[in-house]
Design a protein around this nucleic acid. Structure first.
Lengths: 224, 224
DNA sequence: CGAAAACTTCGGCGCGGGCCGAAGCGTCAC
DNA sequence: GTGACGCTTCGGCCCGCGCCGAAGTTTTCG
């Protein structure tokens, strides 16, 4: 019965603590059990039980390393699903505290979404690439786009079945931005060059002065 | 906190009975409370409470008519969300009973998805339209496509903001098929002409002999 | 080696929620 | 009006589960 599987999947995310874990993990990085526990405001034992359940359901993967248990979103499918759910509940409405406002403004400006860039930054890069005919309307890579990525950004297309470029729904912008191998490569490349940096401990990112210059040169992108 | 809203949304669907209700309502039609109760195998009182909750959350809409309470999926956003969740849990794996096998085979062959056609039938129509340059790669309507719909199928584009054509993910085929106003129109048109008919009480549909002929003439579609 | 750190397991508490049956209320048919 | 019907409300049952603290295991560090 597909309804039962649907209910089981929903039940997995139908808890505030587990939902917080998943959202925290949306940055695509691996977190330890205790990091997630403090981030969500529960004790270590509670976190341990939740993680066991999320891993058992295949939603997260774990890697034991010494006395640490690192967990990560299991893959892009899970990240996609979370994005769709977030898009449904809608962008966070006006916040109460100043700190929360600043934090969510930073998130809206630019962040990582699993392994690629999202927020206004992600959408702006996607738009700039579309304007220069590097992307099609459906966010697949054009020949020009492939050449550009290869030449300017040292991209080599993956050998596996992973789509090179595909759209990902953005829950603050309500627009599609570039995901897939190309999106991931761009994110990694900009990070490696020091063109974008993480802000704080979350998944918000900011463009460095160096990065603004580079993005202007590469894509004619004005500072956000 | 967006995580809390995510958890609340998931909790809404994290019950087998409510999940069954929603899946039953995926045919886009309105059902009465007692119909859903028997379909899901619960008493009237239990169904009433679940429906109240789903309506309060804005997931369903209700229409009181005499002594009946008709409920319906609130809109396309809800249907889309359910499709994505179903796509994640995957197509139903091999069934136990013969009756279940036949029923799910019929569903895979052709069904309605909220207001348009899905399953192999929906995908086949979408593919045939793409082959004839009526649709772009991203399943938007080409000029030829709009002309074809208007001439052959009495289509008039809606005045509102509803997209004329857009992709919808198919949870059995794992492919996109045509949704949006054009998809809904095609479904309604085929049904009105008696080219497709509902099978039984669910959302499975079959193509009539008349319909097979018409689809061959219109789109060069071979019988499924 | 001993102590500290990260995590897990277990017992127990309390709450929420899913279910039903019985009773009540409005609506329709005769 | 009278009865049947569809639905809702209420009380009560019970299970599941989210949480914690305490104790136990494994690894690291000095």
């Amino acid at each position: 019965m597909p309804a039962d599987k649907l209910a089981d999947l929903a039940a997995l995310l139908a808890d505030r603590t587990r939902a917080r874990f998943c959202l925290t993990l949306m940055d695509g990085r691996a977190w330890t059990s205790s990091e997630l526990a403090t981030a969500a405001g529960v004790t270590a034992s509670t976190a341990s039980e939740h993680l066991t359940r999320l891993v058992a359901a295949g939603f997260l993967t774990e890697r034991r390393q010494g006395r640490h248990r690192y967990v990560q979103l299991a893959g892009r499918r899970q990240a996609d699903l979370l994005e769709h759910l977030l898009a449904y509940v809608g962008p966070a409405q006006p916040e109460k505290t100043l700190r929360a406002t600043a934090a969510s403004a930073a998130l809206a400006r630019g962040r990582t979404c699993y392994d690629h860039l999202a927020g206004r930054l992600g959408v702006a890069i996607t738009d700039a690439m579309s304007d220069r005919d590097l992307l099609d309307d459906d966010l697949t890579l054009t020949d020009r786009g492939l050449a550009w990525l290869t030449d300017a950004l040292d991209f080599t297309p993956p050998r596996g079945r992973r789509p090179v470029a595909k759209p990902c729904l953005d829950w603050t912008e309500r627009r599609s931005h570039l995901a897939g191998a190309a999106g991931a490569h761009i994110c990694a490349h900009l990070r490696a060059r020091g063109w974008v940096k993480n802000i704080g401990t979350g998944r918000a990112v900011k463009v460095t002065p160096l990065g603004e210059e580079a993005l202007r040169d590469l894509l004619g992108l004005a500072p956000l």
